[in-house]
Amino acid sequence: MKTALKSLLVLWLTAVIIAGIAVPMVKSPSGPLEFPVIPGLEEKARNIFFHVPMAWTSVLAFFMALYSGVRYLRSKDQDHDLRSVSAAGLGMMFCILATVTGSVWAKFNWGSFWNWDPRETSIFILLLIYGAYFVLRSAVEDEEKRATLSAVYSIIAGVTVPFFVFVMPRIMSGLHPGSLGDEQGSGPVVQMNMAPNMLVLFFASLAGFTLLYLWMLSLRVRTARLEAVTNTIE
């Protein structure tokens, strides 16, 4: 990415974070610089600008790792494995961040850090999948074999993901905002009715975090490539 774009992204995210924390919440907002109070959530609603983009990014990273895994299997080009593992590493980081932000929020909203709400469970399973992916990688010494096996595992784990969307709401009742007590609403995907200005900030944050992730990914891939080259020279 060009330097100008990067600077823009930094400014963008700074603005998003400041707005997410500082824009006042009032009963009857009089302009775009005031958010409405959501009953039951109040100030805690601000978490949506940080927690949800992180959760989204960790899912995106998983599917990018899967996609690079498929590319690897087709080409046996080690570079795709590099991309796959870089994406998975970042995905795991965002997954942990999403779990932590969600958990802290749950403490203040529901009274305990962990409640096995469908969405908490889903993010926890994603964390387990990431964990299993890296345990598998550490258990294989041969480079090609490691790349192949982890790509296959990400595919096998990937095809089960849609089932959670159907299974979770049937098993557990949702506490999560957006559940509305109905089956569709308590799936791992959030549907929210937000004020237009909140929606704008929400998507601005989503875009910002996605771009941040892509930037970090390109950095990781480049350092990983350099490491691979250094290893060959040694």
Partner: peptide, 20 residues
Amino acid sequence: KANTKGTLFPVLAFPVLLPL
């Protein structure tokens, strides 16, 4: 095909089998 065979199985299987 992995080096540590025994303990790995449930670790890999659990998240995949959870919906089932």
